[in-house]
Design a protein around this nucleic acid. Structure first.
Lengths: 139, 139
DNA sequence: ACAAAAGATACCAATATGGTATCATTAAGC
DNA sequence: GCTTAATGATACCATATTGGTATCTTTTGT
């Protein structure tokens, strides 16, 4: 019902990325299978696969087919930005899209509401821009 | 596709309220029919009615049934807040609803992303809080 | 060759949103 | 009181999005 900034796909994706980043620190370069992720994160397997495939297509993950295959991070955690992930699953970040395209609004250019919405978007972008998987993992 | 802060219902509602406020200044206390609004704002009649009925139920409008009836603003434009309208059509304003309820997130309380989302919501509320129909009409 | 992995894709269900249709109720004016 | 013009209430429909499932193909290590 109420507008959400982060959708469920993104949620899952970030969790998976976090898990992979955390595990990667221990077993360096370890490849991770869907089976492990599903067991560890407790989310439906086919859904997880779809998400990983998208992350792979977007070059956040690398995949290896065949027996013994799986996924691994394609970048270090500090270079995986939350905004990237959001864009993959939610499209471009735009809160704005002014509504008053008709004659009612007497002064579209100066419209108050519009200005406020723009400010909100700007702030939101600024807040999210720096955030990477690394920061999510350890404050 | 991309997350929107303002939905279409809200859009229509605000337009209608603006029109009514503007017209009210000329013809003081004038009652306005759906017919006039539809003609003026060019949106589907039954849909407009549903919206007006909701605004009425929420006490932003007053309605008069029967011949010669219609709607009028129940408050002055400077006391109709955009946030009210948004809540009527979009539910409570909550961008947050943290995603990490499971074991993955090692430090929920201090979670970075969470903090950012909270900040965004706070800012958004602050930006929208002051805005009324009056301000939307004349900067 | 076999089995275990991902790639690709098509499908399904639930929900939200935008929009329509219809009937009941109220009140003005002749 | 009858007619007419208005809203009230409500049920319905269509479409898009989202969350989730199923299935078949391709790759690769053993």
């Amino acid at each position: 019902m109420s507008t959400k900034l982060v959708t469920r796909n993104t949620d899952y994706a970030v969790r998976a990325l976090c898990y992979m980043a955390a595990r990667d620190k221990k077993e360096k370069g370890g490849i991770i299978t869907v089976t492990e992720l599903v067991k560890e994160l407790g989310m439906p397997r086919p859904f997880m696969r779809k998400i990983l495939q998208k992350l792979n297509a977007a070059k956040l993950l690398m995949s290896q087919k065949g027996k013994g295959g799986g996924f691994r991070l394609a970048k270090t955690p500090e270079r995986i930005f939350i905004t990237e992930v959001m864009e993959i699953f939610q499209g471009p970040f735009k809160l704005n899209e002014c509504m008053f395209k008709r004659k009612v609004c007497p002064n579209r250019k100066a419209c108050f509401l519009r200005k406020r919405l723009e400010a909100i978007e700007e702030f939101a972008v600024a807040q999210l821009n720096g955030v990477t998987i690394k920061e999510i993992l350890h404050g």
